[in-house]
C-alpha cells in the first residue's frame, strides 16, 4: 500500500461527496484530487464557477494555463471542444470561460456544467495511460499503455490482475510494443521508468482498496526523464 490510512480516508470523503450528490462520475478536479491524494503528481489547479472567479484565480495558477470544462457529461472533453490550451493572460481567461461553456452547451444541450477547471500548463511529454477497473469475475485489474486519444486504436497496452508487485509493474511496462521508445530509442533519453512503475502500483492499490471505485484512469500521464505527472484523470464509481 503506497498511501497511508489518513489519505485513504480523505479519498473516501471525496468519493462519498460524489455519490451523495447522486453522481457516478467524478468531475475532473475531483478525479485529480483523488489521484493526487493517492500519491501521483498533478499540475496546480482550481475549479472556478464564473468568469470573474476565473480571472481572479488564474493569476494564482500562473500562465500559460489550460482551461477544461467541468461536467459529469464530459467524458472525453477534447472531443466536445471542452479543452483550451496555451492561455496566456487574464483577458483570454475571461473570453474563453464564456466560449468553452457555450460551445459545450451547443454540443450537449442538457449537460450540467459545474464550472471550468483552470490548470497550470506543463511542458508536453510522452503520453501514457494507466487505468484500473473492477472486473465482475476477477475483481480489480490494472492497465498500462501508450496514452492519448489514439489509445483505443492502437491498443498498445498490458493488463494485470491487481494488486501488482513492483516486478509485475515493470513487466507491464516492458510488455508494450512502444517500450523501446520509453527506454531510450535512437538517441532520445529514457523516461522515468521507476516513477511510471510507481504510478501503476498506485492505481493498482487504489482500485484494489477503494471498493466503491469501479474505474479509474490517468490519461494522459505525462512521462518525463525525471518524474511523471497526470494532467487528466477519470474516476467512475460503482
Amino acid at each position: 500500500m503506497v498511501y497511508d490510512a489518513s489519505r485513504k480516508r480523505e479519498i473516501e470523503i471525496i468519493v462519498k461527496k460524489i455519490s451523495d450528490s447522486g453522481r457516478k462520475i467524478a468531475l475532473p478536479d475531483e478525479s485529480l484530487d483523488i489521484v493526487k491524494l493517492s500519491g501521483i503528481d498533478v499540475p496546480s489547479q482550481v475549479l472556478v464557477k464564473s468568469p470573474g472567479e476565473a480571472v481572479k484565480k488564474s493569476a494564482e495558477i500562473g500562465f500559460p494555463l489550460v482551461m477544461k470544462i467541468a461536467s459529469a457529461e464530459a467524458i472525453h472533453k477534447s472531443e466536445a471542444g471542452g479543452v483550451v490550451l496555451g492561455i496566456q493572460g487574464v483577458q483570454e481567461v475571461e473570453e474563453q470561460y464564456s466560449k468553452i461553456t457555450s460551445d459545450f452547451k451547443g454540443e450537449i444541450p442538457d449537460a450540467k456544467i459545474s464550472g471550468v477547471l483552470l490548470q497550470k500548463q506543463i511542458p508536453d511529454a510522452t503520453h501514457l495511460i494507466v487505468g484500473g477497473l473492477h472486473d465482475e469475475q476477477f475483481g480489480p485489474v490494472v492497465m498500462f499503455g501508450m496514452g492519448g486519444v489514439l489509445v483505443e486504436l492502437f491498443k498498445d497496452v498490458s493488463f494485470r490482475i491487481a494488486p501488482v508487485t513492483e516486478l509485475e509493474s515493470l513487466e507491464m511496462i516492458r510488455e508494450i510494443k512502444a517500450y523501446p521508445a520509453l527506454s531510450g530509442y535512437r538517441g532520445s533519453k529514457a523516461l522515468d521508468i521507476e516513477q511510471i512503475a510507481k504510478s501503476i502500483i498506485i492505481i493498482s492499490d487504489l482500485i484494489t482498496n477503494i471498493s466503491t471505485i469501479k474505474e479509474v484512469e490517468l490519461n494522459p500521464l505525462l512521462a518525463y526523464e525525471k518524474n511523471v505527472m497526470a494532467v487528466d484523470a477519470k474516476v467512475i464509481l460503482r
Binding site: 462520475i25 467524458i75 495511460i129 487505468g131 484500473g132 477497473l133 472486473d135 465482475e136 469475475q137 476477477f138 485489474v141 492497465m143 489509445v151 483505443e152 491498443k155 497496452v157 493488463f159 494485470r160 490482475i161 474505474e215 479509474v216 484512469e217 490519461n219 477519470k234 467512475i236
Partner: peptide, 25 residues
C-alpha cells in the same frame, strides 16, 4: 467490453484481456 464502461480502460478491457491477465497471474 466490460459493461457500461466509460473510460478507455473499460473500452479496451474486453473480458478476454482480463482472462489473459488472470492466467498470467
Amino acid at each position: 467490453g466490460v459493461d457500461a464502461a466509460r473510460s478507455h480502460t473499460g473500452a479496451i478491457a474486453g473480458k478476454y484481456e482480463v482472462y489473459k491477465a488472470a492466467f498470467k497471474k
